[in-house]
Amino acid sequence: MSEEEWLRQDRLPHIFCAGCGNGTVINCTLSAVEQIGWKKQDTVFVSGIGCSSRAPGYIAADSLHTTHGRALAFATGIKLANPALNVVVFTGDGDLAAIGGNHFIHACRRNIDITVVCMNNMIYGMTGGQGSPTTPAGGLSTTTPYGSEEPAFDLCVLASAAGANYVARWTSYHVRELTRAILTGLETPGFSFIESLVQCPTNYGRRNRFKQVTDQIEYFRSHTILVEKAGRMKEKGEEVPAGMILSGEFVRRNRPALGVRQ
């Protein structure tokens, strides 16, 4: 099988805007699913509501496109009722961290055996560019027209603290690293959380200094720093420059997990 066979050919091209990073994350996820050798028949994709949550609709496996924020609760039911199924959840920053925040921390705590891929575009894409819990301080959106005054969530730190077995962050520029991280997530029993920063040229980029699609990708390329490196810098008392994206593995561990296939 190839990644192309995981796609619902009859639904392409998809609804994402030109240059939207969501399509790239779908590629990386399908590549990882392909590499681990899962069968379509045994694999279920679940999502909430948002542009990112449209992803399962383009994948030719069983898929449940649910209500805003609740994907993890639906996925928990699927996985517990039939642990033989491989469950992957696609979600967005608003879906996961705002309306779905409580389900997120509890799914991490339960360490339920599913893999969550969050397409964090730091904005509410689908509804036209409102601020989200990951909109950076100062970030412009339709509901933060003077710049966001709230601190943003660090989703990976949150997932780590709440108990997930595997936590990693990459961006839509880092296709290889992202694919490898998702693959590790699929392989790890328990809750795996992979955050991918993605460009939303239409509703984030345009308002926040990224005129071209490629501008934000260039930014991702030049503004990432490995978690380990940032850690070493801090140990030495050096400062990690502001605005850098910490990427790589945050956590890889083996806490007791729920819903693992026997």
Partner: peptide, 16 residues
């Protein structure tokens, strides 16, 4: 964690 999740998990389970 709440009733929203309760009914959601039930719907998920039903699809299996």
């Amino acid at each position: 964690e709440d009733e929203i999740a309760g009914i959601a998990s039930v719907i998920g389970a039903s699809w299996t």
